[in-house]
């Protein structure tokens, strides 16, 4: 399994056979705190990659940096052959790297359908000079609506399409956000905690949706705390702790890695607190 994705041994920062995203020396400091300090990481194309780590490991900050929602102190990264450092978030999205948010951002006072339509790219009617003339964008709007309808059926939100997004349940909002991101026709989709706050009944369908994304050829990178989910659907796992990448590998192997156990349980969880010899940090 490791050999299909990584070149050589699975270790932090290892090279991939076919990376879609390569990041180097990405550093983000908040005052004196270094939230993210990633020396080198490659995300494999067409695979589902999980980014895990304890709270405060810098996963979401790293997400924000990659997608242009935050600016790093230093570093550069290349997505699909394009240098992305310093590129504003909306341009990152246009290049095909689309994200969702940990705290779901459904546009509450827009209907579910309007939420979906908004995701479509290169809309003629979004130009203020063309907006006045319905004939200019009417045809495209029909195409958009059809695309949206198909996705809504797939995500079982079609019955809700004329309701305000605010009336959806937490889990449905997660689904809507994912469906809306798909409206942009992304090449890589980044999901920030897709399972947070989703009831168990919806979990399975969400998992299936994520697996479907891979089948359609998309690259998926997601942040998650739910280990069951990580084991179940990811092809590759990257572990962060204290802003750094501490381990990488296929899910089954990475869970046994001592660095991961240290990150989650603390490096000294089985050592005598009296002896300070091994205290690295």
């Amino acid at each position: 399994m490791a050999n299909e994705i990584a070149k050589g041994k699975a270790e932090p920062g290892c090279a991939k056979v076919d990376p879609i995203l390569v990041a180097d020396n990405v550093v983000r400091q908040f005052g004196g705190l270094t939230a993210v300090d990633v020396k080198h990481v490659e995300i494999p194309r067409g695979q589902i990659t999980a980014l895990i780590g304890p709270n405060g490991a810098g996963k979401t900050t790293f997400f924000n940096l990659l997608t242009g929602f935050d600016k790093p102190n230093s570093g550069n990264w290349v997505f699909n052959g394009k240098e992305l450092a310093g590129v504003p978030s909306f341009k990152v999205a246009r290049l095909g790297m689309v994200r969702t948010f940990q705290l779901t951002k459904a546009l509450s006072l827009l209907t579910v359908m309007e939420n979906m339509r908004l995701g479509y790219q290169n809309q003629k009617g979004e130009n203020p000079l063309a907006a006045m003339f319905r004939s200019v964008w009417k045809k495209q709007e029909q195409v958009i609506t059809e695309t949206a309808n198909e996705l809504l059926v797939r995500f079982k939100l079609d019955a809700k399409k004329d309701d305000f997004a605010a009336s959806l349940s937490g889990g449905q909002r997660k689904l809507l956000e994912m469906a809306r991101a798909l409206m942009t026709k992304p090449t890589m989709i980044m999901l920030d905690e897709p399972m947070a706050g989703v009831n168990p009944a919806l979990t399975q369908s969400l998992l299936d949706h994520i697996k479907d994304l891979k089948k359609e050829g998309m690259t998926v990178l997601f942040v998650e705390h739910d280990m069951h989910m990580v084991r179940h659907i990811s092809d590759w796992v990257i572990v962060m702790a204290e802003g750094k990448i501490v381990a990488e590998g296929p899910p089954k192997e990475v869970m046994k890695n001592p660095a991961v156990i240290d990150a989650y349980l603390g490096a000294h969880h089985d050592s005598d607190l009296g002896s300070k010899k091994k205290a690295g940090k």
Binding site: F69, A93, L109, L118, A130, T184
Partner: peptide
Amino acid sequence: KMIRSPWGRVIKGIREDEDAVRSLGK
């Protein structure tokens, strides 16, 4: 007319949540 166009949709989206609209490439 402007508000009922796709332009108006973006505008109302911004009112609801700027970052969400940004993440959709606007």
